[in-house]
Computed example of a mutant assay.
Amino acid sequence: MEHVRVEATGTGNYLDPRAYLGLLPSLSAELPPGARAFAADPDHYNFSGKRCVKDLVLDTLERGTTDGEDWLRLGFRHNCWKHEEDLSIRYIGLSSLAAVPAGWTGFGPVTLDEILPREQGCSHEIGFLAGSLTVLSRDLTATWTEADCPDK
């Protein structure tokens, strides 16, 4: 990630989105509308917020084409200790998808993410405990839906 810091330490990870959050007001005007709304959500980087992406787990990846335009949907499961909702992100006008490592299993929970404006729309890099995904698309739509936490 260019501005969000995610660094392994001897006891866990150091996560710091402050540099990105400082730039976000100026970046917002260049982001497509859906990406802007998702990135600017006040809970997005609030570690105690119900809609913080930290600790979500990727459980669905779907790709397709509608009306000649490629799309991708990533589904993230909640963590019952923190979240009350699952997250689905639909990317429209998909240009590329890159995973590190190249496999699709074992990423673990999300650490943090970063959305940046790009000529063709936006890039969305999602960091996980054991890898990352980077999506380039025309725009994205993030949708939160009620989760099935039995104790809530």
Rank of each mutant, 00 (worst) to 15 (best):
M1W: 09
H3Q: 08
V4K: 03
V4S: 05
N13M: 09
L15P: 03
P17H: 05
G22I: 01
G22E: 12
L24P: 03
R36Y: 02
A37S: 15
A40M: 13
D43K: 09
G49F: 13
G49E: 12
R51G: 10
V53T: 15
K54H: 15
L58S: 10
L58N: 09
D59M: 13
D59P: 05
T60S: 12
L61A: 15
E62F: 12
R63F: 15
T66H: 10
G68N: 09
R73D: 10
L74C: 11
G75Q: 12
R77F: 09
H78G: 06
W81K: 13
H83K: 06
H83F: 08
E84Y: 03
D86T: 11
G93A: 07
L94K: 06
S96D: 11
L97G: 00
L97N: 00
A98K: 14
A99Y: 08
V100A: 05
T105H: 08
G106P: 01
G106E: 01
F107E: 01
P109H: 01
L112Q: 05
D113H: 04
I115F: 03
I115C: 02
E119W: 06
G121I: 07
G121V: 05
C122R: 00
C122G: 00
E125P: 00
I126N: 00
F128N: 04
S132F: 00
S132R: 12
R138S: 12
L140W: 06
A142I: 04
T143H: 06
E146S: 07
A147V: 08
D148P: 06
D151R: 13
